[in-house]
Design a protein around this nucleic acid. Structure first.
Length: 278
DNA sequence: AAGCTGGACAACCGCACGGTG
DNA sequence: GCACCGTGCGGTTGTCCAGCT
């Protein structure tokens, strides 16, 4: 590890912080706030550069830090957000109260990345790895599926998610409006009730729904397609498959669409349970 | 017991960006 | 427009420690 140029010039301390330094910094910021970071070390009586003080405060001394292990929900959220935002750790951290970008970045690199690879998911693209250890539809007993030996990505992910309650990776699945995709969704629908209309009978008009700002990278160009509880709910062009949660869609400003999301979660969970029982 | 290794965490580096004079 | 400064961010690397040989 090198030395900050400013630290070098001023012969400032570097490396791990001592409890005494922590106390000085904490005491100073508690009383006066940090204000201009470059002036903090001088006023607080620290032989550190302002940058180092800022980092120490943000990553360790801040009173609102959560610390401790990441919960399953936090882990799931990190994976989901990373799928949408990429390595924008500060943005990801802003959606996890009490967690720092550095903490999340470390956790991603040392833990989640590894789990995703073990699950056959590329942590960079959130898509299945093109490797031999990938869980294929054929391995899962879908060799007789009409889609054949090499089913499309949406089918692979959908079934992969169904058969693995411990799935770590989230994935965005593009859903083509064709008969094969429709049939697969019918399978998902299972015995949970409700009805799915054949895409060929749909009007094909777009409602132009969009995701929330947090998910602006995705947009749903939806077509009314699915009937549930007497209401027509939109068919998304994309599904977001989430670990341990089945699938979700997020459509801004239309709470009734969330029912569709919960409904799909339920059917996927239901399907996974019945398959495990077999 | 000693050395090695890998994981987790902490901290630094370089760069980009915005504000200011 | 330009230089300078402070700040924030993401990538990288150092440090510590537990487990293994």
């Amino acid at each position: 590890m090198g030395r900050h140029s400013c630290c070098h010039k001023q012969k400032l301390r570097r490396g791990l912080w001592s409890p005494e330094e922590d106390e000085k910094l904490l005491d100073h910021i508690t009383k006066f706030g940090h204000g201009c970071w470059s002036s903090v070390p001088k006023v607080a009586g620290l032989q550190r550069c302002g940058k180092s003080c800022r980092l120490r405060w943000i990553n360790y001394l801040r009173p609102d830090l959560k610390r401790g292990m990441f919960s399953e929900e936090e882990e799931r959220l990190i994976v989901e957000l990373h799928g949408m935002l990429g390595n924008r750790w500060s943005q990801i951290a802003s959606r996890l109260p009490g967690r720092t970008d550095n903490e999340i970045k470390n956790y991603w690199n040392s833990n989640i990345k590894k789990k995703m690879k073990q699950n056959g998911i590329d942590p960079d693209t959130h898509k299945p790895l093109k490797q031999d250890n990938k869980v294929t539809a054929t391995e899962q007993g879908f060799s007789n599926h009409p889609l054949g030996q090499q089913p499309p990505l949406w089918f692979e992910l959908m079934n992969y998610n169904n058969n693995n309650n411990n799935l770590i990776a989230s994935a965005v699945v593009n859903l083509p409006r064709d008969e094969a995709c429709f049939q697969s969704l019918q399978c998902l629908e299972g015995g949970a009730g409700g009805g799915i209309m054949n895409p060929s009978n749909s009007s094909g008009s777009s409602t132009g729904n969009s995701m929330s700002s947090a998910m602006e990278l995705q947009s749903f160009n939806s077509t009314p397609l699915m009937e549930m509880g007497g209401a027509m709910l939109p068919w998304p062009d994309q599904l977001l498959l989430l670990p341990n949660k089945g699938a979700e869609i997020h459509i801004e400003g239309e709470p009734e669409d969330l029912k569709w999301s919960e409904y799909l979660n339920g059917t996927i969970r239901c399907l996974a349970s019945s398959q495990q029982d077999d």
